[in-house]
Design a protein around this nucleic acid. Structure first.
Length: 262
DNA sequence: ACTATCCCCTGACGGC
DNA sequence: TGCCGTCAGGGGATAG
């Protein structure tokens, strides 16, 4: 999404912001409008699951899509549907930026002290694309939780959700139930590599669409067809052929191979 | 201090 | 056909 925002909206000015569902803005809507209206969007960043819009000389805007949030380019004269909660008019002829969210979990917030401040405030750990074994080792060593619960904890590593965590654990051959502190040194290195491999492959495929995710142009991702375990209960493991299992780990549906993952 | 659980919210789906 | 219960999951709040 951030890559698309850069291609489409770099240097574009926001001319007006309309909100149709106030809770989508965490904080004051007037302040959000103040941060965006009349300003050019000069940059876009991502940290973990957060997207940051960086207006010229202004306060960054943090966006979390949660489960079903969508940022979309739309025609200016198109009227908002029941799931559209926020719109930004742009100085692009005939276009606007739309935020839709069926389940209303997603949020816009002001990062008043800047991106780094926001990341610290939210207690986010190292980003999953740049985390080093040293950075992961410490967090895993001092917890009593299982590995899957730790990887889903955004203060341990920022950016992994349920789907990618299952895929990463299958790729490195570790059980989601393994106590985090019992993950060996060389396995921590493999975990870090695997995060990058899975996430970059998913990005190259424009994301994973189980139900709602679409990119800025409204197109579904393609990585759901490359998933090895998530949602594939009973299908043969891509590595050993044994049926994929499903159970609940860390309160989440969890798919894994009981033979390959120990 | 750390961990587990509940809750938000809507649509899809299964059972009757 | 329609009604009801359950499930999906990110993260904040709350309980233990």
């Amino acid at each position: 999404v951030v890559r698309s925002l850069r291609r489409t909206l770099k240097g574009v000015r926001v001319t007006a912001v309309r909100c149709f569902f106030p809770p989508v803005v965490a904080g004051d809507l007037r302040e959000l409008r103040g941060a965006l209206e009349g300003r050019r969007l000069q940059g876009f960043r991502r940290y973990g699951k957060y997207i940051f819009l960086l207006p010229e000389e202004g306060t960054p805007v943090a966006i979390h899509l949660r489960m079903t949030g969508q940022l979309l380019m739309a025609e200016r004269d198109r009227s908002p549907d029941k799931h559209t909660h926020l719109e930004a008019d742009l100085d692009l002829p005939g276009q606007k930026l739309v935020y839709r969210d069926v389940r209303k979990f997603g949020r816009f917030a002001l990062a008043a002290g800047g991106v780094e401040w926001f990341v610290a405030e939210k207690r986010l750990g190292p980003d999953a694309l740049t985390v080093t074994p040293a950075g992961l080792r410490e967090a895993l060593a001092r917890t009593a939780r299982c590995l899957k619960a730790s990887l889903l904890d955004q203060s341990v590593v920022a950016g992994l959700g349920n789907i990618y965590t299952d895929e990463i654990l299958h790729r490195v051959g570790i059980s989601p139930r393994r106590p985090a502190r019992e993950v060996r040194e060389e396995e921590i290195g493999l975990l870090c590599e695997s995060m990058r491999e899975i996430l970059y492959a998913a990005i190259a495929d424009s994301g994973t669409t189980i139900s709602d995710f679409v990119g800025l142009e409204g197109r579904r991702g393609g990585f759901q067809f490359a998933l090895r375990v998530y949602g594939r209960k009973g299908e043969p493991c891509s590595r050993c052929g044994e049926p994929i299992q499903r159970s609940v780990v860390a309160g989440r549906g969890t798919w894994y191979c009981a033979v390959c993952q120990r």
